[in-house]
Every structure is written in structure tokens, then in C-alpha cells.
């Protein structure tokens, strides 16, 4: 593979019912490209957690997935409120989600640690009042 394969998605923050659509699309594309199930699953879970976060915490954003020779990179960028304390946000069980989010099945404070667990590289770039960009890589 010489030309990297790229996918771009706008993640709608207005409409919770579409949250996760981009991740489903990416999984479908990776299956067409013939990736092994465990690689697909790791990319899917990490991206899905991040995509849901953009919808519930940041009013949506964009998702870019690039298939390189040695890894798959997922970049999730939003112009939401930012994360004031990354160490705290990375702790299992820490969540600022309210009951309305929990009623939808999310907000246990498990997403960011899970993204870290399923990827080989994860970097959070965030500024309060400006937004958050999360870059993750899964080795192929």
C-alpha cells in the first residue's frame, strides 16, 4: 500500500441518534480492506468511544481515519469545551455526564481509559474553551 487510504466524517453533535455512525462506516471499510478481526475491533471500539464523547461532551466534530503501512490512525477533533484536567479525565469512573446521558447508556467514565487500552498510541491535545483533538494509532 503506497497511497495511504483516508476517510473523513463530520460527526453531528445535534442528534444523538446518529452517534456512532462514522465508526460503523469505518469498520465496514476496514472489513472490505481485509483487516484481521482483532485490529478492526480495536480501531472500532476506540473510535466509537471517541465519537460518542464528541457528541455528548463537545457538540460534535470531525473524524479522520488514515490507513498507513504500519498502523491505522484515528484523529477526532472538536471545538467543544476542552478537558480541564486530562489526568482526572483518564481515570476510570470519572465522568461529568449527567443523568440524561446515563439514560442513553453512556457516562460511566470508562471511555477514555478504554481508548487508551485498545490503542498502541494515544495523545490528547486540549484547551479549555477551544476544543480537543485526540490522536490514536492501532498497529497493524
Amino acid at each position: 500500500m503506497h497511497e495511504p487510504v483516508k476517510f473523513h466524517f463530520n460527526v453531528d453533535g445535534e442528534n444523538f441518534s446518529s452517534a456512532g455512525e462514522a465508526s460503523v462506516m469505518v469498520k465496514k471499510k476496514l472489513r472490505q480492506l481485509g483487516f484481521p478481526p482483532d485490529v478492526m475491533r480495536r480501531v472500532s471500539i476506540a473510535m466509537y468511544e471517541g465519537e460518542i464523547n464528541m457528541v455528548i461532551h463537545a457538540d460534535g466534530g470531525s473524524a479522520d481515519v488514515t490507513v498507513e503501512d504500519e498502523y491505522i490512525e484515528i484523529v477526532l477533533a472538536d471545538k467543544g469545551p476542552g478537558i480541564p484536567n486530562i489526568d482526572l479525565a483518564m481515570q476510570e469512573g470519572y465522568s461529568t455526564a449527567r443523568d440524561n446521558i446515563r439514560a442513553l447508556g453512556f457516562g460511566a467514565g470508562m471511555g477514555l481509559p478504554n481508548m487508551k487500552k485498545y490503542t498502541d498510541y494515544m495523545h490528547i491535545d486540549t484547551e479549555v474553551g477551544v476544543g480537543t483533538t485526540i490522536t490514536m494509532r492501532v498497529n497493524i
Binding site: 444523538f16 441518534s17 446518529s18 452517534a19 456512532g20 455512525e21 465508526s23 460503523v24 469498520k27 475491533r41 472500532s44 471500539i45 466509537y48 460518542i52 442513553l104 447508556g105 453512556f106
Partner: peptide, 13 residues
């Protein structure tokens, strides 16, 4: 729980 995310979660996993 009944919403589209139940299906998407199962699909991801």
C-alpha cells in the same frame, strides 16, 4: 435499553 447505540455497540464489539 433501546436505542441505535445498542446495535452499534454490539457491532463494534
Amino acid at each position: 435499553l433501546v436505542n441505535a447505540q445498542v446495535i452499534r455497540t454490539a457491532a463494534m464489539m
